[in-house]
Simulated scan of single mutants.
Amino acid sequence: MSAGKTGHAAPFAFPGYRPLDHETVRRIVELLLVLGTLFLLDIITTQIILRMGGIELNPFMAGIVTHPALHLVIKAAILLIIFPVSLIAEQRVKGSGAFFYCVLILLYIAVILNNLLFIVPRIAM
């Protein structure tokens, strides 16, 4: 019996919930990496906008984005919260963890596109 085969329980199991198979955990980790990459792109594009004289439109983040290291720490903390939440959601309702990530990924794609719509025309001038 191989622990690496699809269908075998992965070590990510919270008490009271069904264990997840390795394939599901792998997919959730991959989605976490995609979201983390989008978070990093958001931080970078936001910093570019601020240096170009733009402003942060999210009032909750306005004071945070002026400090890039703090911005990075906040986004990393959010990822550290999202990961166990998505695993628990997936254990409770199959597919919900992936759905959760897909919603967040689409949201951050929109954020990055919005940032690029600010940056690109100013660079092209």
Rank of each mutant, 00 (worst) to 15 (best):
M1I: 14
S2A: 11
G4T: 07
G4N: 15
K5P: 03
G7H: 10
A9E: 06
A9N: 07
A9H: 08
A10I: 05
P11S: 09
P11E: 14
P11R: 11
P11V: 06
A13H: 05
A13N: 02
A13G: 01
F14L: 10
F14M: 09
G16H: 14
Y17C: 14
R18S: 14
P19V: 04
P19E: 11
D21G: 09
D21S: 13
H22W: 12
H22K: 13
R27T: 06
E30I: 13
L31G: 03
L31R: 03
L31I: 04
L32I: 02
L33G: 10
V34M: 01
V34Q: 04
L35D: 00
L35S: 00
G36D: 05
T37P: 01
L38M: 03
L40Q: 01
L40I: 04
L40M: 06
L41R: 04
D42F: 02
I43E: 02
I44K: 03
T46F: 01
Q47H: 10
I48F: 02
I48G: 00
I48A: 01
I49L: 02
L50H: 01
L50I: 01
L50G: 02
L50R: 00
R51H: 08
I55L: 07
E56S: 06
F60R: 04
A62M: 05
G63T: 10
I64M: 02
T66F: 11
H67K: 15
P68W: 02
A69M: 15
L70M: 13
L70G: 11
L70H: 07
V73P: 03
I74H: 08
I74M: 10
K75V: 08
K75P: 07
A76C: 06
L80S: 04
F83H: 02
P84T: 07
V85D: 08
V85S: 07
S86V: 09
S86W: 01
L87F: 02
L87E: 05
I88E: 04
A89I: 05
E90A: 05
E90H: 03
R92E: 15
R92G: 14
V93L: 13
K94P: 10
S96W: 09
S96E: 04
G97E: 03
G97C: 09
A98Y: 06
A98L: 14
F99M: 09
F99W: 14
F99Q: 05
V103A: 04
V103L: 12
L104R: 00
L104Y: 00
L106C: 09
L106Q: 04
Y108M: 05
I109Y: 10
I109L: 09
A110H: 12
A110S: 14
A110K: 08
V111E: 08
V111H: 13
I112C: 13
L117D: 12
F118R: 14
F118Y: 15
I119G: 11
I123M: 13
A124W: 08
M125Y: 15
